[in-house]
């Protein structure tokens, strides 16, 4: 494999292609870095990949996560209360290089902007990340960040919503690499269930603007909802449910719980 195969937009495309070749949607698993503690978190990431995750989204906590519901908020706060910095989080991510899947950072624009987009892009690329998702950075404001991400070969995944106009969808497709993230509902993570029909229509609308894979997140929580989304999307993103598996109960059992859930989800994305 060349470097581009293991990191960056090409690696992400390859992950979607492998899933498509198996006639299933790709499974994208979100986990907050170092939650509930670094060792458990590391083991949970490995468990997720072992159970069939095609891509990892690693959350870098922000104090005011406006797109997140109570589950991910609490995980963020737990990590911040433990005093772990963004550098600590990126160091943690760098230790995931042995996992054979592309990994993206999921964080908020304040984290990237405060560090400076150039430095943040450098640090993410150096940590082995394939891309970055900033859910509160809309396409019209994205130019400066996208330029720095491109410079370091990082994918930039942007969110599309059922309320996005066609003009905005075109702008989102324009700045996105890796995939386009279709929000499965109007709302924050981990609270309601995916709005199937509306989201299917959104995916169709996005396809008119891009050849990139389209993955649906927010509102997917179990095998059934993963299967529902897999019928019309190229990828399925699950976060809060995985965080609950990692964080609820004894940390020693967290990797097994994550493994079991991700296995279920993998069966779901194959069941379309």
């Amino acid at each position: 494999m060349t470097a581009a195969d293991v990191q960056g937009p090409a690696a992400i495309q390859a992950a979607f292609d492998r899933a498509a070749a198996q006639d299933r949607a790709a499974l994208v698993i979100y986990l907050t870095a170092t939650y509930p503690d670094p060792a458990t978190s590391h083991a949970c990431m490995e468990a997720a990949v072992d159970a069939g995750a095609d891509i990892l989204e690693v959350g870098i906590p922000f104090s005011d996560p406006m797109m997140d519901g109570p589950t991910i908020q609490a995980a963020n706060q737990h990590v911040l209360d433990a005093g772990r910095t963004v550098s600590d989080q990126l160091g943690f991510v760098a230790d995931l290089r042995h996992l054979d899947v592309p990994t993206l950072a999921m964080t908020y624009v304040t984290i990237a902007d405060t560090r400076g987009y150039a430095r943040f892009a450098d640090e993410c690329a150096d940590a082995g990340l394939s891309g970055v998702i900033l859910p509160d950075l809309p396409a019209p404001e994205a130019g400066p960040w996208v330029a720095e991400a491109r410079r370091r070969g990082l994918a930039t995944v942007f969110l599309a919503s059922s309320v996005s106009t066609d003009e905005r969808l075109a702008a989102i497709a324009q700045v996105s690499t890796g995939w386009v993230y279709a929000a499965g509902l109007l709302g924050v993570t981990g609270v309601q269930s995916v709005a199937g029909e509306v989201t299917a229509e959104l995916v169709t609308r996005i396809r008119a603007h891009t050849d990139l894979p389209i993955a649906v997140g927010i509102g997917v929580k179990d095998r059934d909802s993963a299967a529902e989304v897999a019928r019309f999307a190229d990828g399925v993103i699950v976060g809060s449910a995985v965080i609950r598996a990692a964080g609820d109960g004894d940390p020693d059992g967290a990797p097994d719980r994550v493994h079991a859930l991700v296995g279920e989800l993998r069966a779901g994305v194959a069941g379309r």
């Binding site: 406006m66 859910p135 509160d136 396409a139 969110l159 599309a160 309320v163 996005s164 109007l186």
Partner: peptide, 12 residues
């Protein structure tokens, strides 16, 4: 200034 919000708010 600017507008740093989730895409879901773009319409509103």
């Amino acid at each position: 200034g600017g507008s740093f919000v989730p895409e879901a708010l773009s319409g509103a």
